[in-house]
């Protein structure tokens, strides 16, 4: 009745609520989409593959004044092996229960056939490109297991600057007077957060031990993807060993609980007292977290009215239905009874 009486009003309200609902769904969609946008935060899913084991990705960022060395990494790997053994987890055959990578940042002069540049360099070790699967334009990635560590990976911008092209696999650049072979050329991340976070220009990736031999630099970032039999297992291992570092569980950061916590601590999130300078991918991830938090807030805002409207409509409908039933039920019952009586009579006849 009320809908019939206020048809236009109800329609208008319905459209508004529908619009708000759509917006809420869009925000929800954006929320989940943002969570899977950054490939650098999806290493756990990639590493898990078809395994039944749970995995978690953890990153540790060290203060500018105190990084770690390769020797610390070797020691930590032994710790991880032991911790996994303590919970009865042991890799069989070619399986692996964890993979890691480490990196340091700096600058280096590099010369190609067409020019030279002082380029930002990310000195990498371990399986860095498992965590950062940048799209290859040519060639292949570099890894610690490579026999020769005189290979580098350029990004497109630097490749254009030094050679004027991107098909450069096998060519040579000169760094610190020594030749280095180009293993591949990669395309940087295309998501908006990474584009916004990375402002250094054309850069390259080279083996950490070679870079350290040229310019002694401590490792500033360590990433680990590890079997996670219980929540927080991998994070605790990293925190225990690298107490001074800023440790983050990447695989849990875009979940709704973490997002809700980010919303609550939104004001203090940017407060940094540990002297850690995050690499661009972590800055991009934090940017995504902020956006995700905003999407969650908008979702909550947008869903409130439709929810209230839906509840109100249900209540009204229930009431109307109740009245109608009370009114028409006896009449209908009588009509039904009469029809049955007539049928029966017709049958008897």
């Amino acid at each position: 009745m009320i809908f019939k009486r206020h048809k236009k009003l109800c329609l208008s309200i319905g459209c508004v609520l529908l619009a708000l609902l759509v917006l809420a769904m869009v925000c929800l969609g954006i929320f989940f989409r943002l969570g899977s946008r950054l490939e650098s935060q999806q290493a756990a899913e990639r590493f898990q593959g078809e395994s039944q084991e749970r995995f978690a990705q953890v990153s540790a960022y060290f203060p500018a004044t105190g990084g770690v060395t390769e020797q610390d990494i070797w020691t930590f790997r032994q710790t991880v092996d032991q911790k996994l053994l303590d919970v009865s987890l042991e890799a069989e055959g070619s399986e692996a229960l964890y993979a890691d990578a480490y990196s340091a940042q700096g600058e280096i002069a590099v010369e190609g056939s067409r020019g030279r540049a002082t380029a930002p360099v990310i000195a990498v070790g371990g399986d860095f490109f498992l965590f950062h699967p940048l799209q290859l334009r040519c060639g292949s990635y570099i890894s610690q297991s490579d026999l020769m560590h005189d290979r580098v990976v350029l990004d497109e911008e630097l490749a254009w600057k030094l050679f004027g092209g991107v098909e450069l696999a096998g060519l040579t650049v000169e760094i610190n007077g020594e030749p280095y072979v180009i293993a591949g050329v990669v395309q940087r991340e295309k998501d908006s957060a990474s584009e916004e976070a990375y402002t250094l220009g054309g850069g390259l990736y080279m083996h950490y031990d070679r870079f350290n031999a040229i310019k002694e630099t401590k490792i500033s970032c360590y990433e680990l993807v590890c079997a996670n039999p219980i929540s927080g297992f991998a994070l605790d291992i990293v925190k225990e060993r690298f107490a001074a570092a800023d440790c983050v569980e990447n695989s849990a950061r875009f979940k709704i609980e973490q997002c809700a916590e980010n919303v609550i601590n939104f004001g203090s999130r940017t407060l940094k007292t540990d002297g850690v300078i995050h690499p661009y991918w972590e800055s991009a991830a934090r940017m995504m977290e902020n956006r995700q938090a905003a999407a969650l807030v908008l979702f909550v805002i947008f869903i409130i009215l439709p929810l209230i409207g839906a509840i109100a409509a249900i209540v009204i409908l229930l009431k109307a239905a109740k009245g109608k039933i009370r009114r028409e039920l006896p009449e209908q019952m009588e009509k039904f009874s009469q029809r049955r009586w007539e049928k029966r009579a017709a049958k008897e006849e």
């Binding site: 590493f47 993979a99 060639g139 030749p179």
Partner: peptide
Amino acid sequence: SLSIGERSRSYDVIVPNSALRSDANG
């Protein structure tokens, strides 16, 4: 600059390094 190679060996199946991937299962 010197470059010296291991004696070549032939194999039945060779793939580019960029095709090779690894995860927990190998």
